[in-house]
Design a protein around this nucleic acid. Structure first.
Lengths: 338, 338
DNA sequence: CTGAAAGCGCTAACAG
DNA sequence: CTGTTAGCGCTTTCAG
């Protein structure tokens, strides 16, 4: 007799609602799950009972019978230090949360542990902990390939470079071109670029955009150093560029963190930003506001991207076939460095 | 006949394991749940069957009968921009993840939505989505009070200023004293402090440490401006301090973000760090490495704190009474600013 | 020490 | 349109 009417405050069940509404459990279940084949009057009575009792479906019971966990993962296959230092990831998580806001699914955030590999992620996905996942990564195609084998629905934020895998991304090439064109328009001519790791699509695509813009202006696009998306790496790359071209007057850096490091090295070398060297970064992260001078940069709408990814995953989960890829535009944000 | 032996690769159930091991479902269940009242021989046979089948208990089924969700929340009741800009939070999340690593509970991260209030958090906790929570916040006691009413086990990272609520924290006062003593030892005499919002325990305690150290050295501790833990707020506070005491020669700032803003304002005012003004921040965040000069700071071991909080929560969940509070020490990290 | 049996709260045929 | 009836996979008395 563990009944709500008599007992403490055990959560009300379908049974309770049914009794109060004077219908059967099945009927209540129908209205709870978007009941369309229920009489309007009945629906009304049930809704009434539900709000009266403060009924909320029991996830576990539902999961048991539907064989769905009601949870999805946001997987960030990145080493700790990057997840910590790059605001892109928390923003993306937040966007995903928004995307699932009214889907009543739990969103769990999974960060890679040091030493994790693709097979561990695949195992996680297959293990039945979650119904699907959003992978937020700028990494190369290896992981995406592995994950694509999975039977689980998966959506990438960032180009997975793997056919048939759903993803959302910003148009990196166009964005990089915009950034470079801005440098040119401001008068720079001896322009270099610091790229990300060349095994990441975001890095190669941004480089391509740079090259396109330079070519279109009839400028030499060969001044380049590869970085690793970290502040320190950006500084090292800048030093190499400076060594090669001491009278550099423009620099497109593939992310803000590297730009911050580069700016420091450039100023230490006695050249002023923006007086001597114009600089544009990428991501519009907090780092772009903390440099002196503040950094002109391209937006990278992490939150929006993840929200869209969430919507795609929802459609996938429902058995649909979302349009993919979905591409978002990046905007130039003018600051002191140009 | 939905039987694993014939069908596809549906996950094996207790039933399957029982059949293979030649025992009953109940027995298998016992060994899975730390079976101590099972014959060693039987246990062995069951384990064998389990690994042979690759059996993994079904969370939903278990949750349904135990009335436990097998999930806990890490709640960060902060506005978006802080969660995004302060590495303390992702680090804390990571620590919590580690703490639950081998407890097979899902850890979900809940960030506050704009406009969320305490009652929404309480409702979330009561709603049965999770079995308990770790609250990571530097905020005042209002939320903690509300959450303490909850029947759910809860552990705070940071002093909740509410009796009877479990928490872990660093010894803020001692840390601030250490920082201030360092400034004094380096020769500073006209020392000011920029505090956090005075409704946060971390802010008031750090101020107290500052005052203690100043008093012990016979120095005047009245030079102070209140900030908001943001970069911009730090700059504004620094401007006020500079206006009041133009020949300032030392500054203890209650977090690195504010210190970054303050450093900028100080240098813009024509005073050099560390030449004219020595500075110490707090948190040992990435921001402390991005300033020019780099910032001496106090560590704030977010990950470690959260890991300990997780352990406390596990004990709470098991019906135990963990020792509380657990206090961790903060370390001085020497950099260029002193 | 082990098995039988009941039931957690829900959904999904299947009949009406 | 609505009710009846089975379970989903697991834990947990209660008897052996």
């Amino acid at each position: 007799m563990a009944n709500t009417l008599y007992g403490g405050h055990a959560a009300p069940t379908l049974e309770d609602v049914a009794r109060v509404a004077g219908v059967s459990r099945a009927t209540v279940s129908r209205v709870v799950n978007g009941g369309n084949l229920v009489a309007a009057q009945t629906t009304e009575a049930v809704r009434q009972a539900i709000s009266e009792l403060g009924y909320h479906p029991n996830r576990a019971a539902r999961a048991l019978v539907t064989k769905r966990t009601g949870a999805v993962a946001v997987i960030v296959p990145e080493a700790d230090e990057r997840v910590f230092s790059d605001p892109f990831f928390p923003q993306a998580y937040h966007g995903a949360l928004q995307g699932f806001r009214d889907s009543d699914v739990q969103v769990v955030l999974a960060m890679a542990q040091p030493g994790d590999n693709a097979s561990r992620m695949v195992r996680y996905l297959e293990s039945g902990h979650v119904d699907g996942a959003i992978i937020v990564s700028h990494h190369g195609p290896a992981l995406a390939r592995a994950l694509a084998q999975t039977t689980q629905p998966v959506v990438f934020v960032g180009d997975p470079e793997t056919p048939g895998v759903c993803y959302v991304d910003v148009d990196q090439t166009t964005a990089a071109r915009t950034a470079t064109e801005h440098l040119i328009a401001r008068g720079a001519r001896r322009i270099g670029t610091i790229t990300g790791p060349m095994d990441m699509a975001a890095a190669t695509q941004r480089l391509r955009g740079f090259e396109e813009a330079m070519a279109a202006a009839g400028l030499d696009a060969s001044l380049r150093a590869d970085g690793d998306f970290s502040t320190v790496g950006g500084g090292l790359a800048a030093a190499r560029i400076l060594a090669e071209c001491p009278d550099l007057d423009g620099l497109f850096v593939a992310n803000d963190l590297m730009a911050a490091g580069a700016m420091r090295v450039i100023e230490d070398a006695g050249r002023r930003v923006p007086g001597d060297v114009l600089m544009v970064g990428f991501d519009d992260s907090a780092a772009a506001l903390q440099t002196v001078p503040t950094l002109t940069t391209m937006t990278n709408p992490a939150s929006e991207l993840a929200r869209l990814a969430a919507e795609m995953l929802i459609e996938l989960l429902a058995g649909g076939t979302p349009q993919s890829p979905v591409m978002l535009a990046s905007r130039l944000v003018l600051r002191e460095s140009t």
